[in-house]
Amino acid sequence: MHMIIRFSAGLCRLLSFIGGAAVVLMMLHVTLDVVLLNLFRVSMNTTPEIVARYYMVAVAFLPLGWLTLRNQMISVELLDFVLPKRLRENLDVLIALTGTLIYGMLTYATWFKALREMRSGSFVELVRFQMPVWHSHFLVPIGFGAATLACALMTIVLLSPRSRELLASHIGEDTE
């Protein structure tokens, strides 16, 4: 059990870290484009496509697992104060199970979509050349896959207080 928790938390953290790297690259890449254009009238025609298809996709999907483990999926706590604690805890398990199911289906669907894109080798046509973009489709099922794993883990964790502490120790630091 300990191994599974350690592995999942590590994986989700790593993916989220890659998402952070994409944010930094996005900032530098776009700024460089602006600077080159204004100082040297040189335009890197690939910037919008690289930003959209690689950086944006990475930052959108890769952190989903980390998000789930840290319980930062946005939800509406409208009835929180009405529901008794027992019921709320049971609901939490049900929610984690539903999440596993939905993320699992998303993983399945986007994985086959990515395979189709790979088979047709999809690219975008730019001014001078064709830029392949099919690789980036695989970031989607990777992110959803991690989220599925995280939701499944949350289900277990919610049922066993001991593993809850273990998980907390692996997510650690600022949970604010």
Binding site: R41, S43, N45, T46, P48, E125, L126, V127, R128
Partner: peptide, 22 residues
């Protein structure tokens, strides 16, 4: 600097010394 909607238009622009922009 001319926005180009595709390769043939880019070739046209380059032929006349303009820079095609994606």
């Amino acid at each position: 600097r001319l926005r180009s909607g595709g390769a043939p238009f880019s070739r046209w622009a380059e032929n006349f010394g303009a820079t095609p922009v994606n």
